[in-house]
Each structure stands twice: as structure tokens, then as C-alpha cells.
């Protein structure tokens, strides 16, 4: 598997990362290097083996249905570039 330059632009757009035209070729090379490295794993025959989800056999912990968090509006909004009436303000997202 290899990615072309259009795929690189597409992935950058989906991640909302601005990539200039000059960076595309370099990124394409890096991504393909990563993919070919990971593709070496294809040489291992894993037929009939359950996918491993954890290095130790453990069950997922669940939490009780109790309200233990929240009520920290100022902390939540502390890093926001713009706020009003305790809302985050963002550039208009509908036409």
C-alpha cells in the first residue's frame, strides 16, 4: 500500500492541518515509509488467532453511575480563544 499526493492532501484536510504544496512530497515519502515498515507485519500468518486487545488478560473496568465531576465552567473555558456567557465562541459553522 502506498499513498499518492491527493491522499496526503485529503488526510491533512480531514485532520484540519494546513499543509503547504512544498510539504506534500516530503510527507508523502514519510507516510509511505511508515506504511512499508508496518507492512512487514503482513509476513506473519495470524489466521485462526484472536486479535489481542491488551497485553495483560484483563476486563474493562466500569464506573458506577454517580455524578462526581463537572461544575468547573471556568476551568473548561480557560484556554478558549473567545467566550461569551460561558459559551465557547467559534467561527460560524453553517452558512
Amino acid at each position: 500500500m502506498a499513498v499518492d499526493q491527493a491522499t496526503v492532501r485529503h488526510i491533512a484536510h480531514l485532520a484540519r492541518i494546513a499543509v503547504s504544496d512544498g510539504e506534500i512530497a516530503g510527507l508523502q515519502h514519510e507516510l509511505n515509509a511508515i506504511l512499508s515498515f508496518v507492512e512487514e507485519l503482513n509476513e506473519v500468518d495470524v489466521s485462526g488467532i484472536e486479535p489481542m486487545t491488551s497485553v495483560t488478560p484483563m476486563r474493562m473496568k466500569l464506573r458506577p453511575d454517580v455524578v462526581t465531576d463537572g461544575g468547573m465552567t471556568d476551568a473548561i473555558l480557560a484556554n478558549a480563544p473567545a467566550t461569551e456567557d460561558h459559551f465557547f465562541l467559534v467561527p460560524k459553522v453553517v452558512e
Binding site: V66, V67, D69, G70, G71, M72, I76, H86
Partner: peptide
């Protein structure tokens, strides 16, 4: 509480008050 956090699900709170990190 919410699906993955301990913040309240109550309807109609002050904006961003039922929010955990």
C-alpha cells in the same frame, strides 16, 4: 452521569457547567 465521565446528564444546566475534563 455521562457514558465515559462523571459529569451530570441533567437537562438545561448553565452552559458548560455539566462538563468534565
Amino acid at each position: 452521569a455521562k457514558l465515559f465521565s462523571g459529569a451530570s446528564t441533567a437537562f438545561g444546566g448553565e452552559p458548560n457547567s455539566h462538563v468534565s475534563l
